[in-house]
Design a protein around this nucleic acid. Structure first.
Length: 291
RNA sequence: GCUGGGAUGGUGGAGCGGUCAAACACACGACUCUGUAAAAGUCGCGCCUCACGGCUACGCAAGUUCGAAUCUUGCUCCCAGCA
């Protein structure tokens, strides 16, 4: 049985659709592909408003002050995925983090190369130019494989050096393991999208987003990876008195809209069947893909 | 009414005689992506042109100058202090 992948833009009702699909096939496995919902204690702002009666995997994996990356998500989710597939259970992957989805659909070969903290500590002090030189010396073909943007991206350069340092053959040659198209949800009408997202922001504030942020900040401070989730930064500014409540709503909404655009850029290149939420309700989309 | 400070691109804000289509930032647009991906990074962003290049711009008008967003004068509008 092929897994179903529900992807797309933030605030389109992906989770709702996934839950409906799961309810259709008893024994389904639902996996969340969301790089922020992996954090515990970050519920309101990240929109972890899942129905209680369904067990979603891939969330609440670490504490807010812990570092995290795809590999951890992959390592916890992939065995479940395989096991369910082998057992003939329906697998539903739902989420807006394209990179995580990609880990399941195409695989990421270099995932086996672990992070090298000592190396990173050394490299993070260097300039982009210096990093480029190191990578060129270590592995010129790897350097040339990077495009212009990534060649100037310190984070990517560091990882490339890290991978090269293991002496592993790093030629990219992954073969997609999932070939069926993904189901993508988005809003064609940007005004409508803005309205929906704005309302969701308001709802999250009503649900205690500010309190949640205060708790996180007082417990862990502001230098944690999880806090980079949309919303926290702006809420923090509000708490510090830098912006008004109205500005908070506008800025947070804006961040979400920008994010949605980035998501679209990422998913656009992939094999996706798109559904316009402005024209179809979740129920209609459900009916459509259930046929 | 008097005195001082301003008027620059979608916005904030540099520039204060030539090297200015105008720093920097934001917004906006396009994009990249194999362990931070709600992250990180790249490119574009007056108009015409694929490009070389050309054209029009720095409140309005008139001057000075080889040359002005930058200097002078007048006008319009804004802000602050004094009445």
């Amino acid at each position: 049985m092929g897994a179903i992948f529900v992807v797309g833009t933030t605030g389109t009702g992906k989770t709702k659709l996934a839950v409906m699909l799961a309810n259709k096939s008893p024994g389904s496995l639902v996996i969340s592909a969301d790089s922020r919902q992996v954090y515990r204690e970050m519920d309101v702002v990240t929109g972890k408003d899942h129905p209680k009666n369904i067990d979603i995997k891939g969330i609440n994996l670490v504490g807010p002050n812990q570092d995290f990356s795809v590999s951890q998500w992959y390592d916890t989710v992939k065995p479940l995925y395989d096991k369910a597939q082998d057992a003939g259970r329906q697998v539903i992957v739902v989420g807006g983090t394209g990179f995580y989805v990609r880990a399941l659909t195409s695989g990421i070969e270099t995932l086996v190369v672990p992070i090298n903290p000592e190396l990173r500590a050394k490299l993070e002090k260097l300039s982009v130019g210096e990093l480029q030189e190191i990578l060129k010396q270590k592995n010129i073909s790897k350097f040339n494989q990077l495009n212009h943007s990534d060649q100037l991206n310190p984070r990517r350069l560091v990882r490339a050096i890290e991978v090269s340092s293991t002496g592993l053959n790093t030629t990219i040659s992954s073969v997609p393991t999932v070939t069926q198209p993904l189901i993508g949800l988005y809003y064609q009408d940007l005004e409508m999208q803005k309205k929906v997202i704005r309302e969701r922001v308001l709802a999250r504030i009503d649900s205690g987003a500010i309190k949640e942020t205060e708790n996180l900040l007082s417990k862990y401070g502001s230098n944690i990876q999880g806090i980079s989730a949309l919303g926290y930064l702006q809420i923090r500014r509000y708490i510090l008195g830098e912006i008004s409540l109205g500005e908070l709503v506008e800025l947070w909404t804006l961040d979400e809209l920008r994010y949605a655009k980035r998501q679209l850029t990422y998913f656009r290149k992939q094999n996706v069947i798109w559904y316009d939420r402005g024209r179809m309700s979740i129920e209609e989309i459900y009916d459509h893909i259930s046929r």
